[in-house]
């Protein structure tokens, strides 16, 4: 017999409490493993600051994947957006940092979606082609006489406040509220999810699929734009490489999205993203403290963690209310 509403609500609350308790317990274990350093406020601040930039990209993925598309060029867009943020930031201060990243991120992702929508090329193929173009463009800017000096200069320290607490946390909270409402409570959000659920049904029910896809470009563009601002504010400088290495930049946000996807049966995916980002960067942080070399070995740990989390999360739960 199906559970009634009260029982369901009770079950959900039990799950939330257990979930929160497990996370708290894990963090305490991390604290002791790390020789009582992990939960130092300065360390926690570092984890939050580091989580902010990939969080916005992971929210962007929520919209992209919800409508059934993917965009492999986001790493390239972040590189170019970060350049713009850096150059304009050094010229015009904080407004330049914000406008530079936002405008480039929004413009390029929107252009990508114009191409996905009207060219008919599968988005992952078009995305890889665009990634190569954006990487080449970034490389040209890096070596060109006119722009080399501008790009090689780091963003001045006084304009990097958005990459640090409390500003990155404030941006995260604002971003969370906006993304939550757009994804769950607006017509465009529901239409985006309908499109990914079944494009034919969505079309037959009168949803304008092209317009909806362009909205995805707009929303994901703004989110990627914010992440350009945060990336530049956190790191101060952006590395440029070719050979599709910019795709590496989206691997961690992708891992956050995958983790969030696993627990979305129980918790709304928009809420899952910052939780998963925090969990993920906590693990990286612990591994660094334990002396595990960053890069390959840490990524191996990350892969194993996703698999284990996936096994636990894939145990189907029926009767979930969202």
């Amino acid at each position: 017999m199906p559970a009634n509403g009260e029982t369901r609500r009770m079950k959900n609350w039990v799950f939330y409490i257990i979930f929160a308790a497990v996370i708290a317990a894990v963090l305490v274990i991390f604290h002791f493993i790390s020789g009582r350093q992990f939960l130092d406020w300065s360390n926690v601040k570092g984890i939050i600051s580091r989580s902010a930039y990939p969080c916005f990209i992971a929210w962007g993925f929520c919209f992209l994947f919800a409508c059934g598309y993917t965009d492999m060029s986001i790493g390239g867009v972040v590189v170019l957006g970060s350049f713009a943020s850096c150059i304009l930031g050094n010229w015009f201060g904080l407004p330049g940092v914000i406008i530079g990243g936002l405008v480039v991120g929004l413009l390029l992702i929107f252009i990508n979606f114009l191409i996905f929508t009207y060219s008919g090329i599968p988005s992952w193929i078009a995305g890889i082609s665009l990634a190569m173009i954006y990487e080449a463009l970034a490389f040209l800017l890096k070596i060109s006489k006119g722009t080399k000096a501008l790009i090689s200069t780091s963003l001045a320290k006084e304009y990097r406040i958005l990459g640090q607490l409390p500003w990155c946390l404030i941006l995260l909270l604002i971003g969370f509220v906006i993304v939550y409402f757009i994804y769950n409570r607006t017509t465009v959000g529901l239409n985006i999810r309908a499109l990914g659920g079944n494009k034919d049904v969505a079309e037959k029910l009168g949803i304008n699929t092209k317009k909806t896809l362009l909205f995805v470009g707009l929303i994901a563009g703004i989110l990627v734009g914010v992440s350009c601002v945060l990336q530049q504010s956190y790191a101060g400088q952006t590395t440029v490489k070719t050979g599709l290495t910019s795709i590496n930049m989206i691997f961690q946000p992708l891992a956050i999205y995958l983790l969030a996807q696993i627990i979305r049966e129980r918790i709304n995916i928009v809420v899952c993203v910052p939780i998963c980002a925090f969990i993920l960067y906590s693990i990286f942080n612990l591994l660094t403290m334990l002396g595990v070399p960053s890069g390959t070995l840490q990524e191996a740990f990350l892969g194993a963690f996703i698999v284990i989390f996936g096994i636990i999360g894939s145990r189907k739960v029926k009767g979930v209310v969202k």
């Binding site: 919800a66 409402f181 017509t187 529901l190 999810r193 309908a194 659920g197 079944n198 949803i207």
Partner: peptide, 24 residues
């Protein structure tokens, strides 16, 4: 649409009629 709740599926394509200030 499997990824949307039953109530939303009833009004899919016409969810705008429940929108106030952009929020459904």
């Amino acid at each position: 649409i499997g990824s949307l709740p039953a109530g939303v599926n009833v009004f899919l394509g016409r969810t705008g009629q429940f929108s106030k200030g952009g929020i459904v």
